[in-house]
């Protein structure tokens, strides 16, 4: 029999098989349960491994400012169970979205960027909005930045890597040309995308290319914590102005509980997420409540 006959014979043979309807609902339910269970189980297993290292549980809420240091000193780490696994390295805090986070130095500012997105100093940017202005500014020397966003990235040409035991993709490391007119040093940048968590981490540096690697090496998969997801991209990736439903789904996926507060805002279409508290990027224990302000 030739290949063509084989194709026909397989087709005929297979066509004799009566196939029942696809159990989509059952698959959807099982998948949801698996995702939740995987989170919980991962926590337990990892907890046993790091129980020793976690002796001095470190506060993981990267409050934007004084709260952070205060929390460290006043025992707010009571919120963190003793066997907590999601503990950042000394001198760092975790900033995350959904199931993944990245360690950033605790003295970094949050979101200290110009309206064009260029940093003023070493900073982490959560949920970076589109550039709001065309202002000209130079990426300062000796500066590192990290930004986090939810998906929406073209990963063609990216390399599969493993990050904290999960599959990830890493972009090529790109170094720009130094700009002689401004005296700015070359900026090196690279991104890592965690498909399962749907989070993109981007690191940029004028310190050194190695600094980018060091920063990206701080990416972890969270076990019994979750990062408050961003919402800025929801308004840009879809023509639907309502962002609340999709954001609440994101919180649900992250294992967080939403408390919706309605507020009238003449500038926003009804159903627009106006803000969330704690702010996107904050790493909180799984199951925490996030206050979501939605326009009426």
């Amino acid at each position: 029999m030739n290949e063509h006959d084989l194709v026909d014979a397989l087709e005929d043979h297979a066509a004799d098989v009566t196939v029942g309807p696809a159990p989509v609902d059952s698959m959807t339910r099982t998948a949801t349960r698996t995702r939740r269970r995987r989170g919980a189980l991962g926590g337990l297993v990892a907890a046993a491994v790091v129980a020793v290292a976690a002796a001095g549980a470190v506060q993981v809420l990267p409050d934007d400012g004084a709260g952070r240091d205060a929390g460290r000193d006043t025992g707010r780490d009571a919120a963190v169970p003793p066997a907590d696994t999601d503990v950042p390295p000394a001198g760092h805090v975790y900033v995350g979205m959904g199931g993944a986070a990245i360690a950033v130095p605790e003295d970094w500012a949050a979101g200290d960027v110009e309206c064009n997105g260029v940093p003023r100093q070493s900073t982490y940017v959560v949920d970076p909005p589109l550039a709001q202005c065309m202002m000209f500014s130079v990426f300062p020397d000796d500066t590192d930045t990290v930004s986090l966003s939810m998906g929406g990235v073209d990963t063609r040409g990216w390399t599969p890597v493993e990050v904290d035991g999960t599959e990830a993709l890493r972009s090529p490391t790109e170094t720009g040309e130094p700009d002689p007119t401004t005296g700015g040093g070359p900026v090196t940048g690279a991104s890592v995308f965690l498909p399962e968590q749907g989070v993109v981490f981007r690191a940029q540096s004028t310190v050194s290319p190695a600094s980018v690697d060091d920063l990206l090496a701080g990416i972890v998969v969270l076990h019994d914590h979750a990062g408050v997801p961003g919402f800025a991209d929801l308004a840009t990736v879809s023509s639907d102005p309502r962002t609340d439903g999709r954001y609440l789904q994101r919180l649900d996926d992250a294992g967080l509980v939403a408390e919706v507060v309605r507020r009238s805002d003449p500038a926003a279409a009804p159903g627009t997420v106006l803000g969330v508290e704690p702010a996107p990027g904050t790493v909180v224990p799984a199951g925490s409540t996030v206050r979501v302000e939605v326009s009426d």
Binding site: A22, T28, E167, P195
Partner: peptide, 10 residues
Amino acid sequence: LTRCLVKWGQ
């Protein structure tokens, strides 16, 4: 397919 849905993003 259930396994695929768990990792649907991928």
